[in-house]
Amino acid sequence: HAATELTPEQAAALKPYDRIVITGRFNAIGDAVSAVSRRADEEGAASFYVVDTSEFGNSGNWRVVADVYKA
């Protein structure tokens, strides 16, 4: 099962156990969220919340930071 994305309210009520950072070329924010979901799932997380997204220069590469939560 894939890790689910939390709302800001849900994330605020929970304590993350880790923070992950992924970088890559994403065509849309949805693609980045899917990549975070896969990584969170690999780490055994039940859910995640994207904290920050930023573009690296003009290369089209993105850096996505997310907190991950157990259950």
Rank of each mutant, 00 (worst) to 15 (best):
A12K: 12
L14H: 08
A71C: 12
V65M: 05
T23I: 15
E55Y: 14
V50M: 07
E55D: 08
L6H: 02
V65Y: 05
V33W: 08
A3P: 15
A46I: 10
V64K: 00
I20N: 00
R63W: 09
L6A: 03
L6F: 03
G57H: 06
K70L: 12
S54G: 08
F48W: 03
S34N: 13
N58I: 11
T53R: 07
V36E: 01
F56C: 11
R25F: 14
E55S: 09
G24P: 01
G57F: 07
F48H: 00
V50S: 00
S37M: 11
K15L: 11
R25W: 13
A2E: 10
V51N: 02
E55N: 11
G30W: 12
R63S: 08
S54M: 14
T7R: 08
F56P: 07
I29S: 06
I22W: 00
A2L: 11
A3E: 01
S47M: 13
G60P: 06
V51Y: 04
V51W: 04
R63F: 08
V65D: 01
Y17L: 03
E42P: 01
N27I: 10
R19T: 07
K15W: 08
V50Q: 01
T7C: 08
T53S: 12
D52P: 01
V65S: 04
V64M: 03
G24L: 06
E55V: 11
E43T: 11
E5Q: 13
V64P: 00
V68P: 01
Y49Q: 03
A13E: 12
V50G: 00
T23S: 07
A32N: 01
A12H: 08
L14C: 12
V33R: 09
A45P: 02
D67Q: 05
D41P: 02
A32F: 06
D41M: 15
E42N: 06
I20T: 00
E43R: 12
V68S: 00
K15C: 14
Y17V: 04
E42V: 08
P16L: 00
D31I: 10
N61R: 10
A40N: 02
I29Q: 08
S59W: 06
R38M: 09
N27Q: 11
R39V: 10
A28P: 04
N61I: 15
D41N: 15
Y49H: 08
A46F: 11
V21G: 00
I22H: 01
D18P: 02
G60M: 05
P16D: 02
L6S: 01
A35H: 06
